[in-house]
Simulated assay, not measured.
Amino acid sequence: MPKRIKSRKSKIGTAPGTLVHVGEHVSEDVKITRISYNKENFNRAVYEDIEKCLSSCRDDSINWINIDELHSIEIISDIGKRFSIHPLILEDILNTTQRPKIDIDNNYIYIVVKMLYYDKSIKEIKSEQVSLIIFENYILSFQEFEGDVFDDLRRRLELDKSNIRAKGTDYLAYSLIDSIVDSYFDIIESIGNSIDTIEDILMSNPSKKTLDDIYKLKRELIFLRNSIWPLREVLAKLVKSEYELIEDKTVMFLRDVYDHTIEIVDIIETYRDILSGMLDTYLSSVSNKTNEIMKVLTIFSTIFIPLSFLTGIYGMNFEYMPELKFKYGYLIFWIITIACTLSMIHYLRRKRWF
């Protein structure tokens, strides 16, 4: 089972706005990627120093700065000073336990989104926090690890005739969120395939592993729902409210993403209902198996009750039992035994016990 709650011990007792990284990192190196583009030009470069990255940005272009690995507090602090970002926002960027949310400032919009992956080998959903800060000509994205779902978006930006090259940072932010939401459908599809597989097993030969798989998928769906449901609130605010950084033309696209999140949540609820029904089916199947076993045992017990009675009587060694010295007593005993057995079988069949 994946670890869902990250330790916040390092945050205990610190003042608000204190920059402390909460989370894990797999690499000691921080990767800073800058993409600058406009209608005519596109440029992409990777840096290790944030100052060199910022100094290479162009005012006549849209500048997308992406940072992989958040353990470098110095880099986050330098970015905060350069763009006048509130310390509480910087604290939230470093604290990777945030739920999806949105904060509005006079000069920027801060958005937290959960980027999710479905590991098919272990059938678990892995989560990564992505923080976006939208400015007029800049958009900053912060990721916990290297690797994301934005490769298709980057390829679109490289194309000279791409429509996105003629739009602002609000449309780029929409494209980033849309890429993340689209990846949710892949997770939903994988979970749906797993449910179909479990359903087939449930109808044929359910086992203890089937029950474990059902509970595991239920946990995954709960985690998925908790990661996506708050995103609806974020998108609703972007769609219903008027912000200078969000153009009216972009609102229509954001509304489309909002509809996708509603669709995903509805599918999740449907899958949860299906799994609950499968759990009931499994318990009913196990109960029926137990009943069948008890029925067989009861039939055997019923057949052997009169036989046990007979053997109990003639197992007594009283001296004056008249049948003890009877010449054909043993044969008669077996005749009576077989007759009793056949009579009990006939009686139980008439009662439709088997």
Rank of each mutant, 00 (worst) to 15 (best):
F185Y: 14
I187M: 08
T261P: 02
G17A: 07
H346V: 14
F326C: 01
L70T: 08
D266R: 04
L88Q: 12
T311G: 15
L331P: 03
D29H: 00
H346T: 13
E220A: 13
I65Q: 03
E319T: 12
P100M: 03
R272Y: 03
I164E: 07
T337Y: 00
F142A: 04
S121F: 01
T18D: 15
L176K: 03
K249P: 01
P2I: 12
V257D: 00
T341V: 14
L310T: 11
L310Y: 04
I345F: 00
S127L: 06
H25T: 15
I164V: 11
N95R: 02
N43V: 06
I222T: 12
T197V: 10
T298P: 00
L307S: 10
F150P: 01
I303F: 03
N66A: 06
R58D: 14
N226S: 15
R58E: 15
Q98H: 09
V234P: 03
D49P: 09
I336A: 15
E136C: 05
H86W: 01
T169N: 05
I274K: 06
F326D: 08
L217D: 09
D259E: 14
T261G: 06
V251G: 00
S61L: 01
D68I: 00
V149N: 04
D29I: 03
N107K: 09
Y138C: 00
N95K: 05
K209W: 01
R349W: 01
N226T: 08
A166K: 13
D68V: 01
I336Q: 15
S287V: 05
G192L: 05
L140G: 07
K123G: 11
N291L: 13
R225G: 12
I180E: 04
I177C: 02
P87R: 09
K6A: 14
Y184F: 14
E189R: 10
V265A: 05
Y47P: 03
D212C: 08
V181W: 01
D273W: 03
R99H: 07
S72A: 09
I62W: 04
Y330T: 12
M321W: 04
K351I: 13
Q129T: 10
I201N: 10
S36I: 03
G147S: 11
F223R: 07
I122W: 02
S241M: 08
D186F: 05
I12T: 09
N38C: 09
M344Q: 11
K237L: 07
P206F: 05
D29M: 02
S175R: 06
N38Y: 02
D152C: 09
V296A: 14
K218D: 08
S55D: 13
I5K: 15
E189G: 08
V30R: 03
I12P: 03
